[in-house]
């Protein structure tokens, strides 16, 4: 028995060391690299790169696209989760599959289908041209692509929680004469509040970092249709490594903030249930 215990302790620490080494090499070291490369030429260069006119414009566009994605996907997520979990209807399975499609296709394909829908060869193109609406290689395209890639993020978090909660409470409230909005506010929302926040955090993270789909639709016009990740790409490909990493460091900080919020939300949510 004694021997077995020593053996198991050895295995335990071996596995812990392997895990920590793996996490360090794959996750921590890249973060350290971004920060150290960003400050390689000192604080002044860093500040210059971060406050560069194009960087700020790119940051603003990233914020804009992220905001749109979070708002639209929140509206969609709440209504879709409500529809799917509170009612019985035909084709529910098909509906949930369709909602999940955006996360299963490659971001490049996401970009491609929007180019096909709104681009020059589309039957919609003449009408859009007449109305003077640019979608491909313009800001609406970037916003649409960002919404697409994060589309199911909020509904996905809400559906399991609402499913587990069942429909009894809502039915009781409805029978007693409560209105839909009251039922949602007083009964449903308290159940989903943490899942809801969690979904928003995930949606924000993915939306601000989206690269592939946005890259297809952006046309890479500096100062016009450039988001932060695209700006990083341009700088890096021009061998401007220090500015590229400086701009990346903004995104790294955002990522860390998101991770912290995520952990806190998850922790409180777990404690409450």
């Amino acid at each position: 028995m004694h021997e077995n215990k020593i053996g198991s302790r050895f295995v335990k620490w071996l596995l812990i060391c392997v895990s920590i080494l793996f996490i360090f090499l794959m996750l921590v070291l890249p973060l350290i690299t971004v920060i150290s490369e960003a400050f390689r030429s000192g604080w002044e260069t860093y500040k210059q790169a971060v406050t560069d006119e194009y960087t700020i414009k790119a940051a603003l566009l990233t914020v804009e696209a992220t905001l749109f994605a979070v708002i639209i996907n929140t509206i969609f997520g709440v209504f879709a989760a409500w529809t799917i979990t509170k009612f019985h209807f035909k084709g529910k399975k098909l509906l949930t599959t369709l909602i999940d499609i955006p996360v299963t296709v490659s971001p490049i394909i996401a970009g491609l289908i929007y180019v096909l829908t709104f681009g020059r060869q589309s039957f919609l193109y003449p009408y859009l041209k007449e109305l003077d609406i640019d979608i491909v290689f313009a800001i609406p395209g970037i916003v649409l692509a960002t919404i697409f890639v994060t589309f199911p993020f909020i509904s996905r978090e809400l559906i399991p929680v609402l499913e587990a909660q069942g429909t009894d409470e809502e039915e009781a409230a409805a029978l007693m004469g409560a209105r839909g909005t009251t039922i949602f506010r007083r009964i449903t929302f308290p159940h989903i509040k943490w899942a809801f926040l969690y979904g928003i955090v995930l949606c924000t993270a993915r939306a601000m970092g989206e690269f592939g789909a946005v890259s297809v639709l952006s046309g890479h016009l500096r100062g016009k249709t450039n988001t932060l990740p695209l700006h990083v790409e341009i700088l890096f490909n021009e061998f401007k490594y220090v500015p590229a990493f400086a701009v990346s460091s903004i995104l790294v900080m955002m990522a860390i903030i998101i991770l912290v919020i995520r952990s806190v939300v998850e922790y409180i949510g777990k404690k409450e249930t």
Binding site: I23, V28, V34, V232, L251, R262
Partner: peptide, 21 residues
């Protein structure tokens, strides 16, 4: 908490960081 980093970190940033490493 770190496990989720690849979801939160923009892929382009991960790409250039891993490349330079």
């Amino acid at each position: 908490g770190m496990i989720e980093l690849p979801f939160a970190l923009p892929t382009a940033v991960a790409g250039i960081a891993l490349t330079s490493l």
